[in-house]
Design a protein around this nucleic acid. Structure first.
Lengths: 214, 214
DNA sequence: CGAACAATTGAATCCTTTCAAAGGGAGTGG
DNA sequence: CCACTCCCTTTGAAAGGATTCAATTGTTCG
């Protein structure tokens, strides 16, 4: 929670063949770009990051030689930047399995699981208890019916251990969201979200986070 | 950070055929079990968790109907429990690709990427700044040479945004680790880890976390 | 040498945790 | 059917830790 979009959009190196070199600090791809390729780090270190609505930055990973990044389905959900000078090996995203052992299969269970792992990681991009709980409730609301009725299957202890908080803070925060009119409580486990976008804003996220692909 | 291993090891339902039903609160598999199967949730909600050395619990995910869990390579790295009564579909882990479209390929890029995503998630299991920074440095030390010499490629700002802290806290915490003799500083980016196990203990983790598979 | 940036450090504030206790359902047994 | 217990949840007050605000030091680079 420090840097505010340092050098976004600054040119990226054009790759030659399968390998490409990117200078320190340069952007490899941006959130929303078409995910035509995924990458393997050969030399150097890459960081993937996400820029939150409040201007803060969340680094979702550092990638060292031998590691892979950029495995998105259609558009990149994160921005990738070179921490050092970097040498990459580029792989074209493909759906079909016949095209070599490095094809990317979106039906692959691991690929689906990867999306779920990222969802959890997303929660920790939020620093305050209020933002985290709000983001969690938005996730729950999205999985529930469209009417904003959320039945929490899990206890406060489960939520706390998931968000990295204590049950006390979770309880207090839910009470606070209720006080602010962002949620309604029919019972400890029964929550209604009248305005999901408002809850998102409380979480510090932009409603419909502008998944812009130019 | 609340519950201390609620009902570990309490019997699990024996599945019949491909589908199995698990009662609320029951364990589906334990950390260290042989990962012979991975699962798809048909009904109910599943949680995956990890138990830290200090007794705390970290929930790494909630899994709703249609979602997958248990995609580990050899042994489960997490414990899976039923939040509600759960109906699961079980899939045998296979290396070969010929055995249907639901095979699990450990060479799959997505599968490899999944491991990296989990590594990031692991950092957030630590609550205090000291534990997080220590865990991060251990990760860096593991990637570096065996002599404990770590060259940090990234700035304090990068570390802060990765760990969900401020640069101030990161700087102070590194200074504190240095004061405690757990690391040596040859420069801001050049760190030496004389005793990796000691640093792990500072992070609240057990050195060699006893990956027991009975 | 000055400018710009990275890192460190101090002091005050704010937030979360910890400690402590009370309220509220669900289930059991008398 | 009610009293009792257990567990989950809520809430208050004090303590601890991270952030914010503010300023200094150190490095690199033109």
């Amino acid at each position: 929670m420090e840097t505010l979009n340092p050098d976004r959009g600054i040119g990226r190196q054009s790759p030659r063949g399968d390998a490409s070199t990117v200078a320190e600090g340069m952007t490899i791809y941006l959130t929303g770009d078409e995910a035509a390729y995924w990458f393997e780090v050969k030399q150097g270190i890459v960081r993937t990051c996400r820029f939150l609505a409040d201007g803060h930055r969340q680094l979702t990973g550092f990638f060292h030689p031998g590691e892979l990044f950029g495995l998105d389905e259609e558009y990149y959900t994160e921005t990738a930047e070179a921490v050092t000078r970097v040498v990459l090996r580029r792989h074209r995203r493909t759906r079909c399995k016949g095209s070599g052992h490095l094809a990317l299969d979106v039906d692959d269970p691991a690929h689906r699981a990867l999306g779920f792992a990222r969802r959890s990681l997303f929660l920790f991009g939020h620093k305050t208890a209020l933002a985290r709980v709000a983001a969690f409730l938005v996730q729950m609301a999205e999985l529930a019916e469209a009417d904003g009725e959320v039945e929490l299957a899990m206890s406060r202890a489960d939520i706390a251990d998931h968000l990295g908080l204590t049950i006390h803070t979770v309880s207090r925060t839910i009470a606070e969201l209720h006080r602010k009119g962002l949620i309604r409580l029919d019972g400890p486990r029964s929550i209604r979200v009248p305005d999901q976008d408002a809850l998102m804003r409380a979480a510090g996220d932009a409603p419909v986070p502008a998944m812009i692909h130019a």
